[in-house]
Amino acid sequence: MEKVKVEHVSKSFTRSDGKGKTAVLEDVTFTVDDGEIASIIGPTGCGKSTLLRIMAGIAPPDSGRITVGGKEVVSSANPASAIVFQAFNLFPWRTAQKNIEFGLEAKGLPPAEREKAAQHFIDLVGLKGYEKYHPHELSGGMQQRVGLARALAIEPEVILLDEPFSSVDMLTRESLQHEVLQILKKTKKTAVFVTHNIDEAIFLSHRILSLGGKPATIKEVFDVDLPYPRDDGVMVSQKALTLKSDLKRALLSSPQAQPEEAGAA
C-alpha cells in the first residue's frame, strides 16, 4: 500500500544574479509504502533537502505532483507530513512542551487535548521532567528529541527527516539513531530520511534511493535486505558490507554537485 507518491517532480531556482535558472531536480519519481522507512541519499548540495521541502508542501514543485495518504500536497496548510530539521528549528521562546504543542495549535486543538497529546510524546521520546525547559537549556540530542516529538505529535501520515542526526555529536548520534528507529517502529510510522551518511542509511532503512546528477534524479534504488534490529553483527554482515560498497559506488559515480542556490538548502 503506497503512502507517498512522488511523480515526475522537477524544480529549478532563479539564479542569485537574476540571469537564468538552475535546474535542481528533474523528473523525480518514487513511492514509499505504508510503514516503510526510506532514505534518500546523495552528495551534499544535490537537492535532497529541496525534495523534502517540496514533499512537505513548503516549496511548490515546478511540475509533477506529490500525494501523501491519497491526497495531493498543494500547500503546507493542514499538513499530512511533518518535518524534523537538521538544525532542530525549535522556537527558542517556547518550552519543550510548548514546542511539541506547536503543530497541534495549528490544528486548532483545545489546550487540554494539546497538553495530553504532548505529554504522551514527551514520554515516548524520553523527555519526562524537561517539559518546562527552553531549547537553549537542552543538549543538542535533547533538542532533536523535542523536534521529533513535535513532528510525531501532529500524527502525520509520513514523517520527513532532514539529516536529523548531523547536528549532534557522534556518541549522541548513535543512541539517538537507535531510539528514533525504535519509535518509528513502535508507532508504525512511514518515514523518509534525507542523509549523506551511508552507514546511517543502511542502519535505518528498508529501502535506499540514491539521488544524483545535475539536475538530480533518482539514480538507483537499493533494497536493504537486513533484519531489524540492525545491531553491530548485522551491520558487519557480508550483505551489509556489499550494500555499503554498492552505495559508495553509486554516490561516487554522481558528478560533484554545485552548492545549492541560496534559499534552496
Binding site: S76, A77, P79, A82, F85, A87, N89, F91, G103, E105
Partner: peptide, 20 residues
C-alpha cells in the same frame, strides 16, 4: 528557517505572524 518551520506545521498568514 523558523518562519518556514511555522509554515511546515500548518500556520499561514496572520497566524504565522502571531505564532512566529
Amino acid at each position: 528557517t523558523l518562519v518556514e518551520t511555522g509554515r511546515a506545521f500548518g500556520f499561514g498568514g496572520w497566524k504565522l505572524w502571531q505564532k512566529v
